[in-house]
Structure formats: structure tokens, C-alpha cells
């Protein structure tokens, strides 16, 4: 499970004016009652657009997120870890399929989403533009990136769009294995030899800033998403999710005798919240716009996979095939 740090566009001033006020009121009343929105229901164009964007970003993140871990399968220490990592990568690609299906019910085809990923038009979680240099990097990804994603996804599963909730329910069930597997791998290194401890500490140092970026820009910098929160598209603010992550995982990192590369990080007894140094948000913007260590490589690997499989798909395509938007 890899979705997180979704970037939302600010709704334009005139975007809502074209909507039928009565249908909009019924739609909002349904969400207010706690009923989910099914694909055949009327929905505002902005709701549809933002959901496609969010679910599609999540799906792309699963696919791209499988790349840094996938290349480590052959180097995983021991047969059991190879099996486990293979199962995890397989799960992530399966999650992508579930999420593409959910987004597809909103009217954008899977092929269009995959094309937009390859062309760079659609985004994916920024964290996968950073390299996994050592085995410890994959352990930190499996534990803490998945942990961050779980915080985000548990919130989203309470959202209003039924197919996305259904997909997330399945995804969350499989995800607990990833988190435990990652935690186990980090514990193994952190309680091991001095070399192993050093390796996992260095990996944590490398991943801390991307992990803080993971939940997206601070609320005071983010675009206004009130309407998306009212429609239960976005379920928690970036800062709230970041706080929840710190609350749950900083103590677990500390108990392993590891340090976190932020001397200002501590729980503020007065506010009950974590104080921390803001990560470099200029870097975040730069990387999300294509200038990260691995952006080009990730997309190139994905594009080549697409190209190499094309002859198989073309051989199987039939011109009479009748594509319709899937149901649920």
C-alpha cells in the first residue's frame, strides 16, 4: 500500500457554477447521511475529476513502488525473505490493478491511465524517486513507507466513493503482512552486528526526509481542500496524518536504539503534538516535477515493460471487443 501525499489541484472559482443545485444538494445530503456514492450515481464534475486523480495516483504509486523492491528480490538475504519479498511485490501490483479498476468506474480507461503515467502527465508518490542503495533501504521502505501509507489509506477507506472503499478494504487486509515483514527486517538489522546497525541507521537517515514529504506539504502551504473534505474525498489533512504517523512510529524507531536525523523532533507536552523541522519543501516540489534522482529511470523502466508487452496485447486484441465502463 503506497498511496500518500496526494497532490490536489485547487478547485477553480467557476468550477462549481455549472452544477445543478438540486442534484448537488441531494448528492451532499447522501454523503452527509454517511451513504457511499456508487458509480452510476450523479456526481459533480469536480468530485469525479479529483477522485480519478487521487485513485490513479495511488494506483501508479503501487506500480512504481514495486520497482525499488522488485530489483532486490534476487539479493534478499535468505530463501524465506526472497519468498516474502516476492509475495509483497506481487501484492503491490495486485493493489494497482484493484485501484485502476476503481478509477475506471469513474470513466477513465486503464490504458489512458497507463499512458498518462508513462508520459509523465500523472503523478505517483514522490518517495519512489529515491534509490534503495542497500538491503536496509528495502527494510525501511517495507516498514515505514508502508506504515505511512496505511495511515493515509485507513483514512481514505472511510471516504465517500464506494469502489475506492471496497478496493481499500481488500488492500488494507493484505497490507498488515507488509508492515510486519518490514518491521521484522528492521529489528533483525537493528539488533544485529555493528555493521548491520550502521547499515539500517544510514538507510533511516536517507529516508527520513522523503518520509516527512510523504504526507504532502503542510496545511498552511496546501491548496484549499475544504470542498474535498466535505465530500469525503480527502479524509484528513496532511499535517494530521503526519502527526499520526509520528505518534505511532517514532517510539518504535527509538526503542530499537536508532536515531532520527532531526534534532528538533520531540513531542510537545503542551500541545500534545510533535515538533519537528520542516523538511525542504522546495526539494519536494523539484522532485515531484521530475527532477529527482530516479524520476527518469522509473518511467523508462515502466515504458520499456509496456513496449515489450505490446505485441502480446496486440495479438490478443479483437476489433469487435466491446469496451464499456466497468460496474463497481
Amino acid at each position: 500500500m503506497y498511496g500518500g501525499g496526494n497532490t490536489f489541484e485547487a478547485p477553480k472559482q467557476n468550477e462549481m457554477q455549472a452544477e445543478d443545485p438540486q442534484k448537488l444538494a441531494e448528492f451532499e445530503a447522501r454523503i452527509e447521511r454517511g451513504e457511499k456514492i456508487e458509480p452510476s450515481d450523479w456526481m459533480p464534475a469536480l468530485y469525479r475529476k479529483q477522485l480519478i486523480r487521487m485513485i490513479e495516483q495511488h494506483a501508479h504509486s503501487e506500480i512504481i513502488g514495486a520497482l525499488p523492491e522488485g530489483t532486490w528480490i534476487t539479493r534478499a538475504p535468505g530463501f524465506r525473505r526472497k519468498l516474502a519479498l516476492m509475495a509483497k511485490v506481487q501484492d503491490e501490483v495486485g493493489h494497482a490493478q484493484l485501484l485502476y479498476s476503481a478509477a475506471e468506474t469513474l470513466g477513465k480507461s486503464r490504458e489512458d491511465m497507463l499512458s498518462d503515467l508513462i508520459s509523465g502527465k500523472s503523478k505517483y508518490s514522490n518517495i519512489f524517486n529515491y534509490p534503495a542503495f542497500t538491503w536496509a533501504d528495502t527494510a525501511v521502505i517495507a516498514w515505514l513507507v508502508d506504515a505511512g501509507a496505511i495511515v493515509n489509506q485507513l483514512a481514505n477507506s472511510r471516504g465517500s466513493y464506494a469502489p475506492y472503499s471496497r478496493a481499500l478494504e481488500r488492500i488494507c487486509a493484505e497490507e498488515s503482512f507488509h508492515l510486519k515483514y518490514g518491521h521484522h527486517a528492521v529489528i533483525h538489522l537493528a539488533t544485529g552486528t555493528p555493521t548491520q546497525r550502521k547499515m539500517v541507521q544510514e538507510a533511516l537517515n536517507r529516508w527520513w526526509a522523503p518520509l516527512m514529504h510523504f504526507f504532502g506539504p503542510p496545511d498552511k502551504m496546501s491548496v484549499h481542500t475544504e470542498v474535498l473534505m466535505k465530500w469525503k474525498v480527502k479524509m484528513a489533512t496532511n499535517d494530521d496524518m503526519r502527526q499520526q504517523f509520528l505518534d505511532m512510529y517514532v517510539p518504535k524507531i527509538w526503542e530499537l536504539g536508532l536515531t532520527i536525523p532531526d534534532e528538533n523532533l520531540r513531542k510537545n507536552e503542551e500541545t500534545g503534538k510533535w515538533d519537528y523541522t520542516e523538511p525542504d519543501w522546495e526539494e519536494f516540489k523539484r522532485v515531484i516535477n521530475g527532477d529527482g534522482p530516479l524520476n527518469k529511470e522509473r518511467l523508462a523502466v515502466r515504458r520499456i515493460a509496456e513496449e515489450r508487452g505490446r505485441w502480446v496485447r496486440n495479438a490478443l486484441l479483437k476489433s469487435e471487443a466491446n469496451y464499456v465502463t466497468p460496474l463497481a
Partner: peptide, 26 residues
Amino acid sequence: LDPRVSRLGLTSLQNDDAEQATVNQF
């Protein structure tokens, strides 16, 4: 940056735009 990716020797085919099928969906 990842030597395991370099070792795969992935090259782009670069000849695909021409053969875009008219139907692109299963």
C-alpha cells in the same frame, strides 16, 4: 543508480508509435 537495473540491459524499442492498435482495450 541501482546496479541491478543497469545489469538488466533494458533498451527502449523506440518503434512503437506507428503500431498503436485502433482498439487499445481488452
